[in-house]
Amino acid sequence: MFSLQSITGVIKSAFLTALTLLLTSVIFSGAIAAEPVIPRGKGEFCVEPTDVMRKDHMKFLLHQRDATVYDGVRTKKHSLNECVTCHVQSNTQGDFIPVNAPDQFCESCHTFASVKLDCFECHATTPDSEHSALRELLPSKSMLNVMAFRQKLEGRSTYHAVDDPSLSEDLIGILKE
């Protein structure tokens, strides 16, 4: 004869096992779905060693934030704008994709880690077109135009983009400097 107690015991443990299985599967499928995509930044290195950046990037940013806002310190190394310049991706047309878009550098990792940022409510998510680092690092559509335009200024005949409306006045300005 089973005692009443042992029967409840069996039922209880079966229930717990089922619950644990259910929970694990939920957690696992969640993790697999949200696996972060981490595209490489531009250039060879980040502004600090990569393992340090993974762990401590927010410390650098928050320190830089106060140094800039209160003391007018404008160093580039830990500036948020510079992160964006190096970590922004371009689509096939050469247009920037905002760094906080779901599958982009900052956001995919944060989604995975359940971190929510408000930074990009205010901060630009793509570099300004006249950004200095742009010229060296990002051969985007406008840069291709710039290269073509430079050839034209130098009297070569390979220029095709002259009637391209995307060639903005400030880019022409940069070249004439």
Binding site: G72, R74, N81, V84, D118, E121, C122, H123, A124, P127, D128, H131
Partner: peptide, 27 residues
């Protein structure tokens, strides 16, 4: 909510703002 802010002049919903004397230029 705002979009297309300039990188040197972050602005966003829910905060107060005024002339900064263009600190980013003055610096």
């Amino acid at each position: 909510s705002l979009h297309n802010q300039k990188s040197y002049s972050p602005r966003g919903k829910g905060t107060v703002e005024s002339c900064t004397l263009c600190v980013h230029r003055v610096d």
